[in-house]
Nucleic acid binder design. Structure first.
Length: 293
DNA sequence: AGTCCAATAT
DNA sequence: CATATTGGAC
């Protein structure tokens, strides 16, 4: 509170844990809202309605449930902006205005760290954190399933990134991402095909082919690649799903399917069951099968 | 030090 | 578009 009193002019937003160690966060919230009208965001691991209501009715601008995803923090500047609209009743369509506000909000981390007003100095320097840490699309089982369905729909030989993208109908998915996945998918097709075609060969060459061997096998395969047959996904799932992607600007990132890091098993695509030899015989349906004609 | 794999470069 | 390489997380 002493910091806020001393820096009220440069504090755009307050983020306060509900279980502040030494002070009652509710008291802080009440005092801030009564004296300063600084947007205050409360966060807590406890998100039950009564708790949230308690803080909202006492003036909290938002209530965030921990653990937080970066997507949830990304848009908290809106509370600062909303306050500005109410106070000034102008400029709310000015994109540059928004940028300035969000940049100032981004500086808060620095303020709390240094207890200093270095925000201005940062103004020209602050870069969007998305520029620093680009997230990667996580090909979840379901997304992969849709990918497979699209590929099978088009036919393996006709399945190219652009067409796959059209068939999949997944918002914000880029052609490049599909192309990358397709590349890996084909690689696994080839790998497994060579294993099957040479299953009677010496086990050493098929299980751990040398670089030379694999490239030879691969060229042999390329000629017959068109004859590879791939089963269509059993449920033919073509659900339309909205997957959020790195540069997406969702106001609520709660359903964001983009993981910070994918959760593939060490075996690579085992989670996708690329491997037809997967032996979990029960209800497991192979996403695809193939056979050399 | 090495693997994995989406992103990026060619 | 296909293929090769990179780079960041593990």
């Amino acid at each position: 509170m002493s910091f806020i009193y001393g820096n009220q002019r440069i504090v755009d937003l307050i983020i306060c844990d509900a279980f502040f160690p030494t002070e009652d966060s509710l008291l802080i919230l009440k005092e801030v809202t009564s004296k300063f009208d600084i947007p205050t965001v409360i966060m807590s691991s406890n998100g039950d309605t009564r708790t949230v209501m308690k803080y909202i009715t006492n003036g909290a601008s938002d209530f965030l449930i921990k653990p937080l995803r970066i997507e949830e923090l990304k848009n908290i500047w809106q509370h600062v902006f909303r306050k500005q609209i109410g106070a000034e009743h102008r400029n709310y369509n000015d994109a540059q205005h928004v940028d300035q506000l969000s940049y100032r909000t981004m500086g808060i981390t620095k303020v709390t760290a240094t207890l200093d007003s270095e925000i201005r100095e940062n103004n020209g320097t602050v870069t969007d954190i998305r520029d620093l840490k680009k997230s990667r699309l996580s090909w979840t089982m379901q997304l992969h399933r849709q990918f497979i369905a699209a590929v099978n729909f088009l036919g393996v030989d006709k399945a190219v990134p652009k067409k796959i993208l059209e068939v999949m109908k997944v918002k914000h998915l880029t052609r490049e991402q599909v192309a990358s996945h397709l590349q890996k998918y084909r690689l696994h097709l080839i790998r497994n095909s060579t294993q099957t075609l040479h299953k009677d060969d010496t086990p050493s060459s098929s299980s751990h082919p040398s670089p030379n061997e694999s490239s030879i096998l691969r060229t042999q395969l390329n000629s017959s690649a068109d004859s590879l047959y791939i089963d269509i996904d059993r449920d033919g799932c073509m659900e339309i799903t909205d997957y959020s992607l790195p540069r997406d600007d969702l106001s609520s990132g709660s359903n964001c399917m983009l993981g910070e890091r994918n959760n593939y098993s060490p075996e690579g695509f085992q989670d996708f069951r690329w491997d037809p030899a997967d032996k979990q015989g029960s209800e497991t349906t192979y996403l695809w099968n193939f056979e050399a004609e």
